[in-house]
């Protein structure tokens, strides 16, 4: 990884969510969420599975259609029916738990395809941008490989480079390390840490508490479709106020000593 690349600063935009509701049939997953992420801020969403944190993240770039509420993303009103969603998504990078690299394209093509087809960048410029971002994630020499020739951690780093190649002003991470072998988690977190240092606005759904504590400006604990507690990362994780937060963190931070009620 070349150092001058990791020091690049980003043009950042924020997120503003008001009164967000989302249901699947009778099952209400999000019960009125208010959430603000300021430009350049790193916010981690934590909580038990089924708490709605992934759904919330997927609502931000409208992969899920909310039932009610307003979402503003970098100057776009995402819930306006007339908004150009494709234009908006170009500015919002998304990293998935399962990487979702395009298996029929090389690593380099994964990073250039949207630049040329969507942003209409000339091939040479797209390639240059892709190479810069592959260098940034430490995979500059892997451009000719296919995704299935890489480890999980490498694939996820390519997925990050692919998203960065669109020059996003906001990055969404949906449990980016949950599908990884333990020994490759660190390399992905290292990339994310360097993005945070570069001033990227990041909204991260994660179970990596030490990462959240160290990197996040703010942590939001969700349970049952509502925000239970939020605040500076060190306070929420180090000294949680709500019983549900305390219980969750105990289970996550010390899983060998969880007691099961008979």
């Amino acid at each position: 990884m070349s150092d001058n690349n990791t020091q690049t600063t980003f043009k950042a935009s924020g997120v503003d969510i008001r009164g967000l509701h989302k249901s699947y049939g009778d099952n209400e997953v999000l019960k009125g969420i208010d959430l603000e992420v300021k430009p350049g801020e790193v916010v981690c969403l934590i909580g038990p599975s089924g708490s709605g944190k992934s759904t919330l993240l997927r609502c931000v770039n409208l992969l899920e259609q909310p039932n009610a509420g307003v979402i503003h993303v970098g100057g776009f009103d995402a819930t306006d029916l007339d908004v150009d969603l494709d234009k908006m998504r170009q500015k919002v990078g998304m990293v998935f738990q399962q990487f979702n690299l395009f298996p029929h394209l090389t690593v380099l093509q994964n990073c250039t395809v949207a630049q040329t087809k969507v942003l209409k960048r000339p091939a040479a410029q797209a390639k240059e941008t892709a190479q810069k971002n592959l260098n940034r994630v430490g995979l500059g020499d892997f451009g000719d490989r296919y995704p299935d020739q890489l480890s999980g951690g490498q694939q996820q780093r390519v997925a990050i480079a692919r998203a960065l190649s669109m020059d996003p002003t906001l990055m969404l991470f949906d449990e980016p390390t949950s599908a990884l072998d333990p020994e490759t988690v660190g390399e992905v977190l290292a990339i994310m840490r360097s993005l945070a240092k570069g001033g990227m606005t990041m909204l991260v759904v994660t179970h990596e508490m030490s990462f959240a504590k160290e990197v996040a400006d703010r942590v939001i604990f969700m349970d049952g479709g509502v925000v239970v507690e939020q605040g500076p990362a060190k306070e929420v994780i180090g000294n949680p106020q709500q019983p549900r937060t305390q219980d969750f963190l105990k289970r996550v931070l010390d899983p060998t000593h969880v007691e099961i009620a008979e």
Binding site: N61, L63, D86, K87, R89, Q90, V92, G93, M94, F96, Q98, N100, L101, F102, P103, H104, V113, A114, K117, V118, L119, R162, A163, M166
Partner: peptide, 27 residues
Amino acid sequence: VPKGQIEAARSLGMPAWRAMVTIVIPQ
């Protein structure tokens, strides 16, 4: 073709037809 492929393509700003032509149909 896994649904995640379409989600990834749409997240990169591809319209539905472009995701179909460039990502889904070749696979």
